[in-house]
Design a protein around this nucleic acid. Sequence first.
DNA 1: AACACGGGGAC
DNA 2: GTCCCAGTGTT
Length: 362
Amino acid sequence: MNWQSDSNGIETTFAPVLEQWYELHKRDLPWRHTLDPYAIWLSEIILQQTRVAQGKPYYERFVTTYPTVADMARADERELLRLWQGLGYYSRARNLHQTARYVTEKLSGKFPDTYHELLKMKGIGNYTAAAIASFAFGERVPVVDGNVYRVLSRVFGIDEDITTTTAKKTFATLAMRLIQTANDPATYNQAIMEFGAIHCTPVAPDCLLCPIQQQCVAYLTGRQHRLPVKSKKAPVRERYFNYLVFRNEGRLALRERTARDIWQNLYDFYLLETDEPKTALRDIPLSDPVAQVVDQSVPAALPVESMQLLSHQRIRARFYLIDVPDELINSLPIDLQWYLPVEISNLPKPVLITNYLDQQFG
DNA sequence: AACACGGGGAC
DNA sequence: GTCCCAGTGTT
């Protein structure tokens, strides 16, 4: 079937029907009670690639801690990252801070109020610009997120691979046409995402109670479980992290991660990554300052093993707790610094590190 | 165009 | 185990 022909009239009824469905079924979420572009922006950044249930408590904490964009602009980046800890994709937090400062200092605290101006901000792409522009300012521009790909691919029977550029263009064009018939662009955008999130779900969509069942190409052809089409991702990379946890007088040596890698600007311990799993400290090749220190130090505990699963990596970590004699505490690599437990608790850390600290010392 | 970037929840 | 989430930035 060629969806462009609109042979069953769905193109003109789609938006109003979804808006009607939304008014009946929408969830009560905190960011739906505000028109403040700052709060809406904050919620949209948090919700990027993040489920509502996971993001909601973070949103509450952020709006409480930083009620205005000026409050966030004033914040220490480390404190902001600490609040973000556990949410993942930490570049979102760094971009959040950068944009808060830009809006406060260069735009006199006034958020950009059009799709095209919003798009210029760090961390705001097509989706988020459309979301803020429509929710806060009523601009008639369609959001296209994972929910929208799923709903549109099913209703209109589009089987293009949604990871390709041409497919993205197809969906964007269709979405732009559909929003023209909406009674209210903000309501419609909320509606199509909410519909995808709680009704037209990835597995087990509720087709039997669907308001557009008889207009849905996927349902009518039994293809709802095969749409959207999405080509497979690369297999997860296996990584082996050997952490040397240096301790002295109750303090631990940590360093900020600065490399172009995961967990940028978060803190962890001295790390030796190996291509294969190593089960003993003596099997790990150590370079000089550290090798000296390890030789003259005392293993303080059995190694702790831990695994962290990311979308794209599986990290198998071993932590070697090592007591360092006083005379060697200044011999360690310069990027390592000694922190008291109370200081460590205030540093932003990957979940892998937090879990280890709980296990070893908690 | 392809890839990197977290963590968790649902099945 | 698999999928994928109110995506964006870089190469």
